[in-house]
Nucleic acid binder design. Structure first.
Lengths: 126, 126
DNA sequence: AATAGATGTCAGAAAACCTAACATGAGTTT
DNA sequence: AAACTCATGTTAGGTTTTCTGACATCTATT
């Protein structure tokens, strides 16, 4: 029994400014990871990016992996293998293994005490 | 046992454009209800509104009440009384009776078949 | 030293949002 | 009916946020 209340999991909801606040990544980084195929946010008709909770979770994981010292190639591999694992583990290919399980499989949860989101002066925390 | 996964309940996350898409209300309406004190979204440093899931739920309820034929005064009363009820029902004054319970108390869930969110041409559904 | 990877920064343009004002249609009141 | 009020539409001018693309920089590696 997965998670209740994930109706919004894939709904494009927040603009990049909010995502920077929630992830501690810069907009530049987020767009760069997109160039590298790590995420693919929805777009408004005007081409502005809108991220879902899925995207957010993915970006948070990217951040963790970066802090663990991985580079793009490594992160790509993690995500590729994750896709593979999902295919092996079950039906189609989408969302078989949970984020948390996944994380336990791929890297032993480092302490990573550093909180972000306040201090740098994001556009929504005065 | 309330709802798991409500870490984001009060986090200012989405801009008004997304809220219009999610609620079926126009930006004009949403701002008008704010003028009437029905909601009070957070603001970015640049004064742009950011809504939380709480705000969203509230706006959805407003929409239902509107569809039930209530006017501003009626809606205000509903929310005022809801606050009262919460005080009667329990401890502090915040979030005692759930949205759904509340709705059952105040108005018998009308059919309201009309779905929205697609058709009018929101900025994010091409 | 040259190269590659990852991110910062800047510039110009476009999108989304802001407030304020006026317009309108449906009900009310006088 | 004329005048009002309520709720919403519409428009205008300005500001904030985001967009893309280019160039700068820093660190490692070759």
């Amino acid at each position: 029994m997965p998670n209740a209340n994930n109706e919004h999991e894939y709904t494009p909801l927040f603009p990049i400014g909010v995502v920077t606040g929630q992830t501690g990544l810069t907009a530049r980084q987020i767009r760069y990871y997109e160039q590298n195929g790590l995420i693919k946010p929805a777009r408004t008709n005007g081409k502005q990016r809108l991220y879902s909770f899925q995207d957010l979770a993915r970006l948070k994981e990217i951040r963790r992996l970066l802090q663990d010292g991985l580079n793009m190639a490594g992160i790509k591999k993690v995500f590729r293998d994750k896709g593979l694992l999902n295919e092996i583990a079950g039906e189609s290919s989408e969302k078989k293994v949970s984020e948390t399980e996944m994380r336990k499989i791929f890297h032993e949860e480092l302490k990573q005490a550093g909180r972000f989101n306040q201090g740098k002066g994001n556009f929504f925390n005065k």
